[in-house]
Design a protein around this nucleic acid. Sequence first.
DNA 1: GTACTGAAAACTGTCAACAGTTTGGGGTAG
DNA 2: CTACCCCAAACTGTTGACAGTTTTCAGTAC
Lengths: 246, 246
Amino acid sequence: MGPRGTMSERVAATRGEEIPVSEQSRPAKLGRVATYAGRSLEVLRGMILDGTLSPAERLNEVHLSQALGISRGPLREAIQRLASEGLVEAVPHRGVYVRSFSARELSDLYELRIALETHAVRLAARYAPQQRIDELGSMLDETESSMGTHATGAYPEDPDFHARLVRLAANPPLVEALTDVGRKIRLARARSAHQPRRARTALDEHREILAALVARDGEGAAAKLEAHLTSSLNNALAVLRAAEPD
Amino acid sequence: MGPRGTMSERVAATRGEEIPVSEQSRPAKLGRVATYAGRSLEVLRGMILDGTLSPAERLNEVHLSQALGISRGPLREAIQRLASEGLVEAVPHRGVYVRSFSARELSDLYELRIALETHAVRLAARYAPQQRIDELGSMLDETESSMGTHATGAYPEDPDFHARLVRLAANPPLVEALTDVGRKIRLARARSAHQPRRARTALDEHREILAALVARDGEGAAAKLEAHLTSSLNNALAVLRAAEPD
DNA sequence: GTACTGAAAACTGTCAACAGTTTGGGGTAG
DNA sequence: CTACCCCAAACTGTTGACAGTTTTCAGTAC
């Protein structure tokens, strides 16, 4: 079940040996969370989302705490938060498992995301300041040029565009809800994400959404966005079914 | 800041002295969570939502753990989950505080809730089995008759109707997202909730929503629901502004 | 009287050991 | 060979003590 090496080895490969708690060399953003529990939360979330911890895998508290170089207390606190976020499932007295999603659940998640994100884009079309919309455009330009140079279309389902788009709605709870859904979707898609074929298509669709947004056409933008996300879902489902043709 | 009595006293008044961990007398639903951390989570959530712990109040770990009759370990785990749910705000090394919401944040939350719940009702109109819709109707009948007998219209913004309505959409992530938003709204409304005047009105509006649902008119139901929630928001805002006319 | 200083008190973060539950496996009866 | 039982190992849940940070407040200088 646990692929390639012990959990400890995989953990060590993910980080730089130990978790520094009072990062003095980098006073900026990364050192903000000054507690083992907080850092463990981020490390574990990263390990789950990038596949270091596979779906349905059990998290052994003793092994993990040793691998992270901390005791079980702060680790358990981090795990509780992961459970709240829906990335792991905790069964009392039996352990916590990385959550795995069925095709149906992936569809449900996408449906929810579509509802939230189309709502966000409608709000953005009405209220977002012109400047913020323009910034989104230049971001797409940069992405495209970097795609041109690096032959390997490094555009793995574009987390940034959607995140920024949603923030234009200026509704923090909405952003938070979409962040939660987005994390689960990322987990549900696991390694099926990196489909280079769709990179160019996705970029074009993003441009269409943005064009509608510039024209302050909320309904149009919502429609384009829904189509974009629907094809993203279909892509994910196809990969999923190809991997496990059950 | 802390109103009426020490925290311990208020906690003791909320529970039955101590948290039984292996509830043997009640083998059914309530005893399902067989851990102090799990039970503490529910107790604390209840205390926050019913106002035993006031907004902006600090949660002292030592006092709380003594009041709950447990040690700080499981208590901290529960608190971490509350932070993930957005009911408390944790500041490293400084403590956790019951979250308080501004009028703007309450509006944002309602906007999100409207988007989610109208989406849910549209799904319900399309896919919900007839039987489940009928059950919703009989629930309203019961509510009305009990309202008639008990002169005190005990209909404090109706948690059940909306919860059941949403479940008809048969999309678990959607239900979960709305549960999260609903909790925050309950906290944001605090004691402003119990407005008996709106009880009758709310019931009528529920009937209208249900009628549209029976007719499988998703758009109509969504419109009625949006109006219902909007007036609920305005009601809450009015109470909020009346309490603190700042 | 006001503004700084610094040590004590209070509190949060972390740890290591203990307790209770679940799991795995050898042994035995059928 | 299969099914059941029971005990030991492994693991999760909980605790009390220790460590480091923040806050408070008396004392002092101005």
